[in-house]
């Protein structure tokens, strides 16, 4: 073994050397780097999980917003429909009341007219009677007294239909 130089003390020193290197590398290389790698891995994992969570939350809130919008739309439609209905009803009512008023006005006008007409006819009749009396008086001077005349004319007028009926 001397030929290739195996030497126990040197071997032991080399073993110690290796152990020293092992320890120093452990302290200065493996431990810090592995720690950092693990930390980074944990961070990446965490942030990815967070991102996933945020994504899910966003999705959920989007859906919520959509649902809200849908609800609001439906409500709005309902309101519009109701409003249209109310408007329709109001219109109908207004129409009805207008018609009724118009009818009442017309009927009132009609009765008024009737009344006016009757009055006019009455007046005309009296006037006509007076004129007739006057004329008759003038024709038959004092032959018949006034009362008799009146009665006579009234009878005539009653018989003459055009003024009696409408």
């Amino acid at each position: 073994m001397e030929g290739i130089g195996i030497n126990l003390p040197l071997l032991i020193v080399f073993v110690i050397n290796f152990i020293i290197l092992f320890g120093l590398l452990g302290i200065f290389l493996y431990k810090p780097v592995l720690k950092t790698l693990d930390e980074r891995q944990a961070r990446i994992k965490e942030s990815m999980e967070q991102a996933e969570k945020i994504r899910q939350e966003t999705e959920r809130s989007e859906e919520e917003i959509k649902a809200h919008l849908e609800k609001a739309r439906k409500e709005g439609q309902a309101v519009i429909a109701q409003a249209t209905q109310i408007g329709e009803r109001l219109k109908e009512e207004a129409k009805d009341s207008a018609r009724q008023e118009a009818e009442s006005v017309i009927s009132k006008a009609r009765t008024e007219i009737q009344r006016e007409r009757d009055k006019a006819i009455e007046e005309l009749r009296t006037e006509f009677a007076d004129i007739a009396i006057l004329a008759a008086e003038k024709v038959i001077k004092e032959t018949v007294d006034k009362k008799k005349h009146r009665k006579l004319i009234d009878e005539v007028l009653k018989e003459s239909t055009p003024f009696k009926q409408k």
Binding site: I4, G5, I6, L10, L11, F14, V15
Partner: peptide, 9 residues
């Protein structure tokens, strides 16, 4: 190239 070193490892 020293046999002791490979042997130690």
């Amino acid at each position: 190239t020293d046999i002791n070193l490979p042997l130690s490892i």
